[in-house]
Simulated assay, not measured.
Amino acid sequence: MPVSPPIPKLPPLRALRAFESAGRLGSFAAAASELGVTPGAVTALIKGLEADLGAPLFTRQPRGVELTALGAETLAAFTAAFDALGLATRALWSSAAPRAVHIATLPAIAQLWLSPRLPALRSLAPDIAISITAMEAPPNLKRSPHDLCLFFSDGPGQVIASDVIYPVCAPSLAPRLQSPDDLAHVPCLTDSAWDQDWPRWLAAANTRITPRGPIFSLYALALEEALNGAGVLIGHHPLVAPHLESGRLVAPFALRLPVKPPLRLWSARPLEKGHAARRVADRLTGQE
């Protein structure tokens, strides 16, 4: 009587994901952040995988980890496989919920640029449900459940607006600012994520003062304080333009400094005409 050979046991998918993420990012901690687990969990998963294989995939060093020859040789294939799995899953989600669109963007863009446009989007496309996730860095759209990314980026995609920076303040504060040197005598508001805004603009203005003032972890909070007259903020034009148009903010100096990268919208795959994500993208880029 024929006997079927035993089916080889495959390594756990979670362990393979931990290996691929740690190998691609070069760090167990970065892999843990990406996968939403602890660094200890990543370490345990990779140790278990190495035990199953009977060979090491990483060399542990005081300052981090490095792929062994075996790990480096096989990493690309696993990256391609997980990217393909992520795209297939994204297609499955899109087919299951064809009228739902998920957008990932910076907190400042979500609050100051995207949110004011949502009423018009809902009016033009009432059949589409739009969800927004605010995050500090673009996700890997091949792996994440998001349809669109909206960030200041030099990558691929459609440019929404160029970024230009310049000081802005409430009209009540403007009379105290006759030249850039006067910034030494007023609070200069800073967003911690864009802490180089002031040095870049002041260098372009040939001013050597050191700006002093409160630091905020959210640009929207810093902007609200500028609106309240609490100080001067470096404005990013796509985010402050409505307040300049309304007169709630003014730009006391003529110098406007173009900076990169621009505000850009992109997707992980071509968006078919008529698809909900394509309709939202076309409206955000002014093509519909």
Rank of each mutant, 00 (worst) to 15 (best):
L121Q: 11
W194H: 15
C188E: 06
L189A: 05
A203M: 09
D127N: 12
A129P: 14
P126A: 09
Q196E: 15
H185L: 06
A129R: 15
I132Y: 03
L218F: 09
P175Q: 08
A108I: 02
A204C: 11
C169E: 00
S131N: 11
R117I: 03
D197E: 06
A205R: 05
S179C: 14
D127V: 07
T210Q: 15
P126M: 06
A97V: 09
I165P: 00
I103M: 11
D154K: 11
M135V: 14
S144M: 03
L121H: 12
L106H: 15
L124N: 12
A193F: 05
P145S: 03
H185Q: 12
L173P: 06
A125G: 01
A174T: 12
L202I: 07
L124Q: 15
L218H: 14
R143F: 04
R208H: 13
S179G: 08
N206I: 06
A204M: 11
A205C: 11
Y166A: 09
T210Y: 10
W201P: 09
D197C: 03
S162G: 07
I165M: 08
F152M: 12
L112F: 13
T207L: 00
S192Q: 11
P180I: 00
A203V: 12
D191Y: 09
H185T: 12
M135Y: 07
V168Y: 00
A96I: 08
A205Q: 10
P98R: 02
I128S: 10
S153H: 14
S144P: 06
P171Y: 01
F151I: 03
L141R: 13
W93Y: 04
F152I: 12
L106Y: 08
P211Q: 08
A96N: 08
C169H: 01
A100F: 11
S131I: 01
A204D: 12
K142W: 02
P98A: 02
D154V: 13
I103S: 02
A203Q: 14
P116M: 07
I130C: 02
L202T: 00
W194D: 12
R208F: 02
P138M: 01
K142E: 11
L189Y: 02
P214H: 07
H146D: 07
N140K: 12
L141N: 07
A134S: 09
E136K: 15
P116E: 13
L183A: 07
W113K: 04
A129T: 14
A97D: 14
P138W: 00
G157K: 07
D191L: 03
D191M: 01
A161N: 12
C188L: 08
P138F: 02
T210H: 14
D191A: 04
D182G: 06
P187S: 03
L106D: 10
S94F: 01
A193G: 13
P180D: 05
S131A: 10
L173T: 13
L106E: 13
